[in-house]
Design a protein around this nucleic acid. Structure first.
Lengths: 228, 228
DNA sequence: CGTCCATTTGAGGTGGATCAACCCTAGTGG
DNA sequence: CCACTAGGGTTGATCCACCTCAAATGGACG
């Protein structure tokens, strides 16, 4: 069914001392002397489900992850895309509040939640960094509520492009890991509307394609302007 | 211009030892021995603006507050309504990320942010409670993204009614402090659509009015069902 | 009792959804 | 190496849920 050749998911690949990817989370791990384990998830593989016990916290090493909620009839809202360096699955309640799935073959580092909590209970600096990470997630969620509640389709897609440009552009080119449907479910649109908006921006000379998921931004200023 | 007779906002009314409203925040204040001050804001008065330095953290004693973001052309997304007992204005970054306004005459307790941070830096229990509060806000934001991105007008209004029923029903009656426009800006709808949805629910016998803002729910089950 | 604003209701317009081809490209197997 | 296939993406035509504009109604307060 799935085309990934990378094994069956939850088998650990190896254990490592926490190598710093250059981020706040790495700093936490280092401070607390925590051991992380690397796992590999295949394309489309579920990492955890909504309401499952939150036993681990994850950081992406390579790949991309979507976290989402579903309505009973299948409507889906993606809350966030997680890219290398991003942390997800960090909770203060017993269970995960969204489902997490690998979008492409993805390597994650994971830490036992209990060990993080232990570190936070002993070290106020760790506690503060964890709080800050959750506050950062909240800030993105607040910005996204504004987008979902009040922006037009073109404004949403412009905002998405700027976000992805910022987060994954290499050499002026961004290689999107996710399909049009995922983008739509993130922006509260259908995949057709996303496609039309991208075509529109292409026609206006604001971006170029080299393959549907390889995008070069030609005019960031106009994207910023239409982001309102 | 404003009709509130309650003075000019930021003048302190009195200082009190932290009386516990029976909540987690009160517990924090008590633990840390923090002094709070009560303030009174008039109807429609701004408490703080987006991007202003976040000097205080607020808890509502009486009244109601909306926090929101604006687009440059005036489109508004209300992120949350805050009711008695609720805490707002808690940040880990230097500035507030939304504007806060009193919806009606509102009494708040406030604490210096720096004193809370000091408490968090010395007491991991306080630090954990603050983190949990932010995590709770994040959880509500995630649920609200699902609503804004994927629910129909009727589903949104049903969700709103259940939320308010839960938070402010007294004797089976809920007295909404906010107008239809505020509800619309919270739900990502226009005020007319909110009004029509409420009329529809009234016609279906799911709720009764005694005044536009006095609502009695007659059939919570059907509201839960349509909340998807 | 009159004024003002919130709310309701109506009529018509529209942005994005839905339904339906069609196209493109990467992967597959011959 | 190329034909075939399948899934993702694009584009077109139509629909409809919600928005916009407009007017009537109602309730609170001086």
């Amino acid at each position: 069914m799935l085309t990934h050749s990378v094994g069956t998911g939850k088998a650990p690949r190896n254990s490592t001392p926490p190598m710093d990817i250059g981020d706040k989370f790495g700093t936490i791990l280092g401070r607390a002397g925590l051991v992380t384990t690397e796992f590999l998830y295949g394309k489309e593989e579920e990492i955890y489900g909504e309401d499952e016990p939150a036993e681990f916290v994850y950081q992406i090493v390579r790949g991309a992850v979507r976290t989402y909620k579903l309505l009973s009839d299948g409507r889906r809202q993606i809350g966030a895309f997680h890219l290398p360096g991003d942390v997800f699955g960090l909770e203060t309640t017993p269970n995960h509040r969204l489902t997490a799935e690998a979008i492409v073959d993805t390597t994650v580092r994971l830490v036992k939640r209990s060990s993080l909590e232990h570190a936070a209970a002993t070290d106020v600096e760790v506690a503060h960094r964890l709080w800050s990470m959750t506050a950062g997630d909240l800030q993105r969620a607040e910005n996204h509520m504004l987008l979902l509640g009040r922006k037009t389709a073109l404004e949403r897609v412009a905002a998405f492009l700027l976000e992805m440009d910022h987060r994954l552009s290499v050499a002026a080119m961004m290689a999107l890991p996710m399909c049009r449907r995922d983008i739509g479910d993130y922006l509260g649109l259908t995949l057709e509307t996303v496609s039309r908006a991208l075509s529109e921006l292409h026609e206006r000379g604001i971006l170029d394609f080299s393959g549907a998921r390889q995008i070069v931004l030609r005019n960031r200023q106009s994207l910023h302007t239409m982001n309102a």
